[in-house]
Write a protein that binds this DNA or RNA. Structure first.
Length: 929
RNA sequence: GCUCAGAUGGUGGAACUGGUAGACACGCAGGACUUAAAAUCCUGUGCCCUCAACAGGCGUGCGGGUUCGAUUCCCGCUCUGAGUACCA
């Protein structure tokens, strides 16, 4: 029979599902290997051809690892809480769980069609109560923990209480809010319970605090920093403003240093690690207190953070953020009007304006002064919006000779600029050099950068005016959304204080509500739930953010149906961590950072075993759209006609481009019949053709419906089958590279599979395989591909494997090879890429049905590749002139003699004797003339 | 601005530690089969010069360098894409 991909693919997909072929066991004598994909949010649009790229790569890897004798965990699930389903619910009144359910069904059908080897028995859905029960449980553990900096780990809040009871707040080295109290053990014991709880909340890893949040009025919710791009929401693109609100937060900053250090221990792409480093934003420097110069000494000061404490003698003014809490107190009556005007002006500017306008220098003088703590010099205090309230202390010591922003500010307002390093050149701009010796700098004059920094820090510490300090850019993550479709927070409020519900009450189910909007009084949608109340108080009304459920899901796959724990100890100790994680780089600072944070926390409380969850990570590139255009002829009156001009001829006509559905275009040639049916108005369309064809124009754009460039995998599978789709997606180019989807060329892969099928069949399509012993040439082809695929998969170079398969099949076709000894092994090697056709041929070869998935990958034997001759390229001055067959047993000296004796070589030498002869055995001969 | 990644035929791309640049595939051209088309198969295909062959010249974004030899290493630049943005 001819290659009937449809029958074959349906048959094997059914077989795998019925026999649970890919079900993984939680214990095995085999070594474990965990291959994970970033699970999708099931959107209403279904999968387009770009989505499965990473899944195909990971599936090939998982199948390959099974052949290599590993016990492979390769699961899939759905990140099914999220905004789009809720927006849809607001519009239609339909419960998000219904649309989510329907979308998941579509995703599942599409995924199944591609022939993935997922263990579906472990499927998870973040919106399912038996899953989010454990998300809530982890939240409770975080609430019950504090971060002990001395131990460098999270500990139970009980240990903190015990310490307070024994020694008060003394000796506690914790990551906590800034306004923590100082007290003795007796004082602690005397505190009313409410005060104790309030104080403990300042230490908990998930805590409630009034904080400035990114409020998105259009979405009616707050957003995390990574959900905001340029002042607009990432989803939907609505404006975002700053607002103060009581909010749940996660103390991720406690883990800043470990999150940073851990990056060096994992095998991730460098750009991704770099993004996380920037996001964490560690800077090493010092904090310095500048005492206020106002009259009598009342111990008041302004604290700044600086990375260049060595430049402290170059400070000629201080700048604080307009939002700084001391602005009012510092403003003198004479300056009041000016300061007020400036603050009003900054407030008017939107976040976006402030970012766009980085050139204009602006600011205002408060009228007050501080003293330089090291030499007592009077330093004016200014406010300016180039200093951000949210970073460091919201105040900077300005060193115009070394910092360009300070330099511009000083020039603009005529403030002094003092050079502090002998080789500094500050004629036209600041010079931040660390080379040279210090001048104008009191006791560090003549020192080098390193010596000066150490000396200044030591001096500041000795007089209590400062200390070495590490600052992080990363902020604690806001952990609440005023939305419906998310995990309820397992907390109720009593006397204004948050209390956890008991574990026995988990899961706290999402209640039914009448519509998915905030209440009339502005409460989140959960405020609409009637009768939804804890026996002890009111439930928290916000829900968890989208990243909650995805921050631990890889553990649930290990033991997906456990009702007593999020995963059993035994399962976690067996699978440990994810060996290979494939997904998009858009999750660099969101999901991948939060997951690492929760993982470290779970390790601290002894629930998991590895410090890092994802050992190796690969980012698949984005698949962009490739739009096709037709060109409508414009008549003399400037109106569009119904005549269309082929792309190659548009220079000669006046035309306007129009998107055309890429699905009616093949190799950029328009299918005229389908085009006429594309829209009713084109029914009577006429064409100006080139070479009898209508050639379309091309542009690379985002894949979207409005651009008619969405390619659906269903259509490709219908036409060519899943095996062709899988191989073609890999053939497109390196996995990590972004590229436009282009269906041109898919024929080549399809033809390859037919050619492979034909190796097993005679001219009349009868299955025909011989048991003859293979020849040397056949064995060579086979073993080349055995090695090549092994090497390629290990370095994630899937595209080159596909080419090599083509070469192998071309060679075997030329050799007319139909020998079982060759084809059976070739089938195993190809099966990771094209599993359906290989299962079918494996069965036809007489093997028991379905055993291919667990067959042994053939062992490479280098003996078959040994050559006794090599066609040496002979080059003269580095340019190849000819090839000579020379025995590989010859040594360089003999090769040289052989080559020089050759008549053709002599011709190129034109009678001259080469100055030098380079012979690299088995590679090249180069004659230097 | 800063950080990272990249630039190879008409197109997607290959060349793994410096050693025959353009594998494999698409497209295109020619041919076979066919009444014809589709499908299939065969041949050719980096560019320039040449009727053609032979031969030759030029070629991995640009300019230099190291080397017997550079797509690969080093220095400088241009362009493209991504991330980030007054971070003190």
């Amino acid at each position: 029979m001819d290659y009937q991909f449809k029958d074959i693919e349906q048959k094997w997909q059914q077989f795998w599902a019925d026999k649970k072929t890919f079900k993984a066991e939680n214990n095995s004598a085999k070594p474990k290997y965990y291959v994970l994909d970033m699970f999708p949010y099931p959107s209403g649009a279904g999968l387009h051809v770009g989505h499965p790229l990473g899944y195909i790569a990971s599936d090939i890897f998982a199948r390959y690892k099974r052949l290599k004798g590993f016990n492979v965990l390769h699961p899939m699930g759905y990140d099914s809480f999220g905004l789009p389903a809720e927006q849809y619910a607001i519009q239609t009144g339909q419960h998000p769980s219904i649309t989510t359910e329907a979308n998941i069904a579509t995703y599942r059908r599409q995924l199944d069609q591609i022939g993935f080897s997922f263990d579906w028995s472990r499927e998870v859905r973040t919106s399912s109560p038996d899953y989010y029960k454990w998300t809530q449980w982890i939240f409770m553990q975080l609430f019950n923990s504090w971060y002990n900096k001395s131990a460098e780990k999270a500990e139970s809040i009980e240990t903190l209480v015990q310490h307070f009871e024994k020694s008060g707040s003394k000796g506690i080295n914790a990551v906590a809010d800034e306004d923590i109290l100082t007290f003795t053990a007796d004082e602690w014991k005397a505190f009313p319970d409410a005060v104790k709880q309030e104080e403990l909340l300042k230490y908990r890893l998930t805590y409630l605090r009034e904080s400035t949040v990114n409020w998105c009025p259009a979405l009616g919710t707050v957003l995390a920093n990574d959900e905001v791009k340029d002042g607009f929401s990432e989803r939907g693109g609505y404006p975002v403003e700053q607002k103060k609100m009581m909010q749940w937060s996660m103390r991720i900053t406690a883990y800043a240093e470990r999150l940073l250090q851990g990056l060096d221990t994992i095998d991730w792409p460098e750009p991704l690690r770099e993004m996380q480093r920037n996001w964490i934003g560690k800077s090493v420097g010092a904090s310095v207190k500048f005492p206020l110069a106002t009259g009598e000494d009342r111990g008041e000061y302004i604290e700044v953070f600086t990375t260049r404490v060595d430049t402290i003698f170059g400070v000629t003014f201080l700048v604080i953020a307009p939002e700084h809490e001391l602005v009012n107190a510092l403003t003198t009556p004479e300056q009041q009007a000016e300061i007020d005007a400036y603050i009003a002006q900054t407030k008017k500017k939107s976040e976006l304006d402030r970012m766009a306008d980085t050139k204009t220098v602006s600011g205002a003088f408060t009228g007050s002064y501080v003293l330089n703590p090291l030499n007592g010099e009077r330093i004016p205090i200014w406010i300016a919006d180039y200093v951000l309230a949210g970073y460091g202390t919201g105040a900077v010591m300005a060193v115009p000779s070394g910092d360009q922003r300070d330099y511009l500010f000083a020039k603009h307002f005529n403030l002094p600029i003092v050079p502090i390093i002998d080789i500094q050149n500050i004629e036209t701009e600041a010079d931040p050099t660390k080379e040279g010796k210090y001048i104008n700098s009191d006791f560090i004059n003549g020192l080098s950068y390193k010596e000066a920094t150490a000396a200044v820090v030591a001096k500041l510490e000795s007089i209590g005016a400062g200390k070495a300090k590490v600052n992080f850019r990363m902020r604690d993550a806001i952990f609440g959304r005023q939305r419906y479709w998310g995990e309820p927070v397992p907390v109720y409020f009593k006397d204004g204080l948050p209390n956890l519900i008991s574990e026995a009450e988990l899961p706290l189910l999402l209640p039914e509500i009448d519509k998915y909007l905030p209440t009339e009084t502005g409460e989140p949608p959960l405020g609409r739930a009637t009768g939804w109340k804890h026996t002890e108080g009111e439930y928290e009304l916000s829900t968890m953010p989208g990243w909650a459920g995805s921050s631990w899901y890889w553990y649930r796959y290990m033991d997906a149906h456990n009702e007593a724990e999020f995963a059993s100890k035994q399962a976690i100790e067996y699978w440990k961590d994810v060996d290979l994680y494939i997904g998009g780089s858009e999750h660099a600072t969101g999901h991948l950072l939060y997951s690492r944070f929760w993982n470290k926390f779970l390790k601290d409380i002894g629930k998991v075993v590895e410090e890092e969850p994802f050992k190796k990570l690969i980012n698949q590139g984005m698949i962009q759209g490739r739009s096709n255009f037709v060109y409508r002829l414009i008549d003399d009156e400037g109106r569009g006609t119904n005549t269309f001009v082929s792309h190659g001829l548009i220079k000669d006509y006046k035309t306007s481009p129009l998107h055309v559905d890429v699905n009616i275009v093949e190799n950029d040639t328009l299918n005229l019949e389908k085009f006429k049916k594309f829209r009713p108005e084109f029914e009577t369309a006429e064409f100006i053709l080139e070479g009898g064809k209508y050639i379309c124009g091309v542009e690379v754009e985002k894949m979207s419906k409005s651009k008619f460039n969405v390619v659906n995998p269903d259509d490709i599978i219908e036409r060519y089958g899943a095996d062709t789709l899988r191989m073609y997606e890999m053939f497109l180019g390196p996995l990590e590279q972004s590229k436009p989807w282009n269906t041109n060329g898919i024929e080549g892969v399809f033809k390859f599979l037919r050619k492979f099928w034909r190796l097993f069949h005679d001219a009349d399509w009868n299955f025909n395989v011989s048991n003859e012993a293979p020849t040397k040439a056949e064995l060579k082809s086979l073993h080349k591909i055995i090695r090549k695929v092994e090497e390629d998969i290990e370095r994630f170079s899937f595209n080159t494997s596909v080419s090599s398969f083509m070469i192998a099949v071309n060679e075997l076709t030329d050799l007319k090879c139909n020998k079982r000894a060759i084809l059976q092994d070739l089938t195993i090697v190809l099966s990771a890429y094209a599993p359906h056709i290989c299962e079918e041929l494996w069965a036809l070869l007489g093997n028991p049905d379905g055993t291919l998935s667990y067959a042994a990958y053939p062992v490479f034997n280098p003996d078959y590749l040994v050559e006794d001759e090599f066609a040496y390229p002979i080059s003269v001055n580095g340019k190849t002139k000819l090839n000579l067959n020379i025995s590989l047993s010859l040594e360089p000296k003999q090769i040289e003699e052989f080559v020089l004796a050759n008549a053709d070589v002599q011709k190129y030498l034109e009678g001259k004797t080469p100055k030098k002869v380079i012979v690299v055995k088995g590679r090249i001969v180069n004659l230097v003339v």
